[in-house]
């Protein structure tokens, strides 16, 4: 099998059975925003807006470059944003305005 067909038959998340590094028993306490992001994922699933499998595919769709630099919950929130655009639930424009508004609020707390 050549390199391109290998990419086709084994998508980025499909790593079961591949060789890998020794397991390092790492863990960390979630930051508040990470926990909010996790709760958001659950709430999106409850309302059938984005289910668990759509989330997983959304993360896979980010591609290997983003996958290699973003952390676990960074990938989740990026995937949610993309999926919400794809479903027409949010528009990139309203999202961009809201990002500016939230960033300005954090920078200049009332």
């Amino acid at each position: 099998m050549n390199q391109s067909s290998e990419l086709l038959t084994r998508l980025p998340n499909d790593i079961g059975g591949l060789p890998g590094q020794p397991v390092k028993k790492v863990d960390h306490v979630l930051e508040p925003w990470e926990k909010r992001c996790h709760a958001l994922a659950d709430v999106l699933d409850f309302h059938k807006i984005i289910n668990t499998e759509e989330k997983r595919r959304g993360v896979e769709d980010l591609g290997s470059e983003i996958d290699s630099v973003e952390s676990y919950y960074e990938r989740w929130i990026t995937a949610f944003t993309n999926i919400l655009f794809q479903k027409g639930i949010l528009t990139p424009e309203e999202f961009a305005r809201k990002m500016d508004e939230v960033a300005a609020r954090y920078a200049n707390p009332a």
């Binding site: 925003w33 909010r36 929130i77 639930i89 949010l90 999202f95 809201k98």
Partner: peptide, 12 residues
Amino acid sequence: YEVMETAIQELL
């Protein structure tokens, strides 16, 4: 990403 999480939550 934290700004992003807040933005998405507020829009929804």
